[in-house]
């Protein structure tokens, strides 16, 4: 199942920053992590990840850095900046409030079985 576009717009930057907050990742690594760790739900087309990264970079929430990969090649990693962390904290709080509010309406988060795809 894929998320509706509107949900995705809100969730995607949040997801990416959460992942990068744990540790720096390079592009392909991030794509794989998104797919794997969200059970495929936030596996936005890989083509969407790079625009999102450029966006976040433009906003100053992530910053690129170059490392040498084991293969000897130079690799571009992304890390979260201080601004990014601040924004992430804000978004998390909003997310918590949203969930709580919806919960009061009777919308509790139920565990959803991962659909086999």
């Amino acid at each position: 199942m894929t998320l509706e576009r509107e949900w995705m717009r809100g969730a995607a930057p949040l997801a990416v920053l959460t992942l990068l907050d744990r540790r720096e990742m390079y592009g392909y690594e991030l794509v794989e992590a998104l797919e794997r760790d969200t059970g495929g739900l936030l596996a936005m087309g890989q083509s969407t990840v790079y625009p999102l990264l450029y966006n976040l970079e433009g906003r100053g929430h992530v910053a690129p850095l170059w490392r040498t990969a084991p293969s000897g090649r130079r690799r571009k990693y992304y890390r979260v900046t201080a601004e990014g962390r601040a924004w992430l904290a804000q978004q998390r709080e909003q997310w918590d409030r949203l969930v709580t509010a919806l919960g009061r309406l009777g919308l509790s988060g139920r565990e959803v079985e991962e659909a086999t795809s």
Partner: peptide, 8 residues
């Protein structure tokens, strides 16, 4: 960036 992505 794209090349690196595909190479990876």
């Amino acid at each position: 960036d794209l090349r690196a992505h595909f190479e990876d």
